[in-house]
């Protein structure tokens, strides 16, 4: 037997949703939601209104903490030990004689190395495949090229009388790396923003069909 009423309701299903909760209701819900670690904002006092950029606040906090730790650790490590092998991605590790030839280089190098490290760790947070970016290899190659020319410059430093010029070139090399990484970061951020957009649109179909 046919259920005409059921059929009628099915045909007009959407029209039956006529009520809406008061807008203040969200406020009430919000107040009772567990506030995620408000205390962690102690840090944010330092950065003033850093709260404004907290797009993914929890994520950003963790990321920032990691970057900070890595940065500090690396700087300390490089400053403290003039060890010939700092064993990190950049071939430019401070050999002892550098202090005699170009004393300022060690410091500058440590600074840039920590910067580069920071950018790289930021970059690694993006899932490149998800964002549909496949030119990462190019960038890796570019960085590798820069790295090897850095090693060569470094060698020349010991053999050439004109250290200033080479130190300049070394610093420039480091700066280019940072620029490359920055540009990549920008691209990724923009991509991420674009990818997030579709989520904001209400999925009406799904809500009403269930």
């Amino acid at each position: 037997m046919e259920d005409k009423l059921k059929k009628f309701v099915d045909e007009h299903r959407d029209e039956f949703d006529v009520f809406e909760p008061r807008t203040e209701l969200w406020q009430n819900i919000c107040e009772e939601l567990p506030q995620k670690r408000k205390t962690a904002k102690v840090i944010s006092i330092k950065f003033g209104d850093s709260a404004s950029f907290s797009a993914n606040s929890m994520f950003m906090r963790i990321a920032a903490a990691i970057v900070l730790l890595v940065g500090c650790g690396l700087t300390l490590f490089l400053m403290k030990s003039n060890a010939p092998e700092a064993g990190n991605t950049i071939a430019a590790t401070t050999a002892p004689p550098v202090n005699n030839i170009a004393p300022e280089l060690a410091e500058v190098e440590a600074y840039y190395v920590s910067q580069i490290k920071e950018k790289k760790s930021k970059l690694s947070e993006y899932d490149l495949k998800v964002l549909g970016l496949d030119d990462q290899q190019e960038i890796d190659q570019e960085l590798a090229r820069l790295d090897s020319s850095y090693v060569q410059l470094k060698k020349q430093l010991y053999t050439t009388p004109n250290t200033d010029e080479i130190v300049g070139a070394l610093i420039q090399n480091l700066q280019i790396r940072i620029r490359v990484l920055n540009r990549q970061l920008e691209v990724l951020q923009r991509l991420e923003q674009i990818n997030e957009q579709p989520d904001l649109e209400p999925q009406k179909d799904e809500t009403t069909n269930v």
Binding site: F19, C30, L33, K36, N56, L200
Partner: peptide
């Protein structure tokens, strides 16, 4: 899931009317 308030609001906006009915 990570406690993002804005995401919670998005879900609320999406579903509150249907659920209220």
């Amino acid at each position: 899931k990570s406690g993002d308030n804005r995401a919670q609001y998005e879900l609320y906006k999406l579903y509150s009317k249907a659920m209220f009915n």
